[in-house]
């Protein structure tokens, strides 16, 4: 005789529900840990406990490894978009607005979200695997035993470098993207450079530039924070390092899309 409860425990519904509940629990757990690390990192930054040498080193690493891929992704996306729309717009007599359209697109959305994706894949994954490796080889334990705070030592310079460098990378990528749009519209549909650059400023306001930079600051800091956190709680050898890296990439992707939505609602609704 099995009781109803036992029967229920063996059922697929119970197993699926339990699995989902576990997933949700671990989601909340991760969210809590990231938040806690973020608060602690911010505390150190506001108290000025910053090792600038290390920040500069991390910024250098950030710039060098993310610029090539960010530039190519942003300019290629611009080329794709411009080759789709420039032709039609010129045909319909709207050629003088191609520059405006592409600039709005790059400054408001494309530049920052594409840079974000490029930076997640280059910087986020490398931060996560670096810190996860330090965790599973007990290097973080060693830092703690030597009475150095690992958040201050590892997180602060990396998060700061994200906050500082992502706007820089974004500005360079946007400029290059706008130029790439000019060249490709010119080649694809014979649009003159003069009419492209003349219309460029029509749709762009200070607010757009400001919001875009602010987004880059938030994205950069968030990517670095999430990636460091995912690495920080890694466990279980080489496999754990891989899992932490995957988690960092997924969480960062979702986080910047959420940020982006937040900005869209807050500034452009």
């Amino acid at each position: 005789m099995i009781t109803l409860k036992q029967y229920y425990r063996q059922s697929a519904t119970y197993k699926i529900l339990r699995g989902m509940l576990r997933q949700f629990g671990s989601f909340l757990d991760t969210l809590g840990k990231i938040t806690r690390n973020g608060i602690e990192t911010a505390k150190y930054i506001f108290h000025g406990q910053i090792r600038w040498n290390e920040v500069i080193e991390q910024c250098r690493r950030f710039g060098i490894s993310s610029l090539p891929i960010t530039l190519s992704i942003v300019s290629m996306t611009t080329i794709i978009v411009s080759s789709q729309v420039a032709n039609e717009m010129v045909k319909q007599g709207g050629g003088s607005f191609v520059g405006m359209l592409l600039t709005i697109l790059i400054v408001r959305e494309l530049g920052v979200i594409m840079s974000g994706f490029a930076i997640i894949s280059m910087i986020g994954s490398s931060l996560a695997s670096e810190i996860a490796t330090m965790r599973v080889t007990e290097q973080i334990d060693a830092i703690e035993v030597l009475k150095v705070n690992p958040i201050q030592y590892l997180f602060v310079p990396r998060v700061l470098s994200g906050i500082i460098m992502m706007p820089v990378v974004l500005i360079i990528a946007s400029v290059v993207g706008v130029l790439a749009g000019a060249v490709s519209s010119n080649l694809a549909s014979g649009l003159s450079y003069i009419s492209y650059f003349d219309s460029m400023w029509l749709g762009i306001y200070m607010k757009d530039l400001f919001v875009s930079i602010l987004k880059a600051v938030c994205f950069g800091g968030t990517i670095a924070l999430i990636s460091c956190s995912c690495g920080y709680y890694a466990s279980g050898g080489a496999k754990g390092v891989g899992q932490a890296t995957t988690k960092a990439v997924v969480w960062s992707f979702v986080a910047i899309v959420i940020w982006d939505m937040f900005f869209a609602i807050a500034f452009f609704f």
């Binding site: 080889t137 007990e138 060693a142 830092i143 030597l146 009475k147 150095v148």
Partner: peptide, 23 residues
């Protein structure tokens, strides 16, 4: 530590002086 746990991004001197520099 059992498996040394040296900081592999730092050289030997910086490993040994870690606490003196960072604490």
């Amino acid at each position: 530590f059992q498996y040394s746990a040296l900081f592999d991004s730092l050289n030997v001197a910086d490993n040994i002086s870690f606490a003196l520099h960072e604490r």
